[in-house]
């Protein structure tokens, strides 16, 4: 018997609201890929909720014809956790920016990940505060000149994927706004994962930080700067696919294939490795240090989810103690009777 679920299209996921992002903003592309991907999941629209914080990226829920909540700055993971606990039947997405997730919301991000709540986080990383018009963010590179760092930023930037791995995220991935096929596939994998899925998306803010990711998006050079991860495959990259990543002791190094280096000498990707060591090593590879930056799924492992644990414990206690009875509860301590007076 075939299910009679209506087949949805990307257009079915568009709300009636005008989109207010700047023309050319990378957010459009992420929105488009999300709408295109969701029908693949077969989840009805009314079962999907997008929760966001504050920022340009966080306007996202308004544009989706699903349930949604545009909350307050940095706190989306907390709303989403409460929602998911109350309603484990819903598919919950958290949409956040680099400032929203990593600055004001750093605490919540850390805790939602370590709890492994079954939801999906998409971090739109444009390395700038877009909505407040161009101050530097926790992912802006050191030395970055912005409105609030006219002489260059002194802060060390934060690496979102290292942070996620450090919190023992069970699913960690990265994609790029303009690499639409890859983005769609990555979001789909995130949706399918049980537990917290953390996806960083390189997103261009063409107004306040244009070209921040050009090394990873420019057609002519990106192949040399990106390492597309595939589970079980050797780590090969480069326009001519002639470079690879090899382990030298504990350190990765870039090597040229041929000239005595075989594919088998390279590091093979294992997204299911129980220890997060490999994922961490990958997350640390930066273009500035001469490495290609990995995209795709760094880590995807199975681990019990928080929401399942909460429900299971409630069920277990209910089996042990029986369904709660208020009348019995109120009488569980010492009680005494006061009888009616005759006088």
């Amino acid at each position: 018997m075939s299910t009679d679920l209506p087949v949805l299209t990307a257009a079915d996921f568009s709300s009636d609201q005008d989109i207010r992002w700047c023309p050319g903003c990378g957010d459009y592309s992420i929105l488009a890929q999300m709408k295109k991907m969701l029908p693949n999941l077969g989840v009805p629209r009314e079962k999907i909720v997008f929760v966001s914080g504050i920022g340009c990226s966080s306007r996202f829920p308004y544009y989706m014809n699903t349930y949604g909540m545009h909350s307050i700055h940095g706190r989306a993971p907390a709303f989403a956790t409460g929602l998911k606990l109350a309603r484990p039947d819903l598919q919950v997405w958290v949409i956040t920016g680099d400032g929203d997730a990593l600055s004001i919301g750093g605490n919540h991000l850390m805790h939602v990940i370590r709890r492994n709540v079954n939801l999906n986080i998409v971090l739109f990383n444009n390395r700038i505060y877009g909505l407040t018009k161009g101050q530097y963010s926790p992912t802006s590179p050191a030395g970055k000149r912005t409105k609030s760092t006219p002489y260059g930023s002194i802060d060390n930037p934060l690496n979102p994927l290292s942070l996620a791995v450090g919190c023992e995220a069970t699913f960690v991935a990265r994609s790029i706004d303009t690499y639409i096929k890859h983005l769609g596939a990555t979001l789909e994998r995130a949706a399918e994962h049980q537990g917290t899925s953390f996806v960083e998306v390189y997103q261009n803010c063409n107004v306040f930080n244009d070209g921040a990711w050009s090394y990873a998006t420019d057609r002519n050079i990106k192949a040399d700067h990106l390492l597309e991860l595939e589970h079980g495959k050797p780590m090969i990259f480069g326009k001519n696919r002639d470079k690879g990543i090899r382990l030298n002791g504990m350190e990765p190094e870039v090597v040229e294939l041929g000239k005595g280096v075989q594919e088998d000498d390279l590091l093979f990707h294992d997204e299911k490795a129980t220890e997060p060591t490999l994922a961490y090593l990958l997350s640390r590879m930066r273009m500035d240090d001469g490495f290609p930056e990995p995209i795709g799924v760094l880590r995807s492992v199975e681990h019990p989810t928080y929401d399942d644990g909460v429900i299971a414990q409630m069920d277990e206690v209910t089996v042990q103690k029986g369904q709660g009875d208020l009348n019995a509860l109120f009488r569980a301590g010492d009680t005494w009777e006061v009888e009616a007076q005759n006088t």
Binding site: S71, A78, L83, L85, N107, H111, Q323
Partner: peptide, 23 residues
């Protein structure tokens, strides 16, 4: 727990109220 009560000890008071709004 056997009365259908879910308690969530959040990471801070902000997360606590936000989780409640989500619920």
């Amino acid at each position: 727990k056997n009365y259908g009560v879910k308690t969530f000890q959040a990471e801070d008071e902000i997360a606590a109220i936000c989780s409640a709004i989500g619920a």
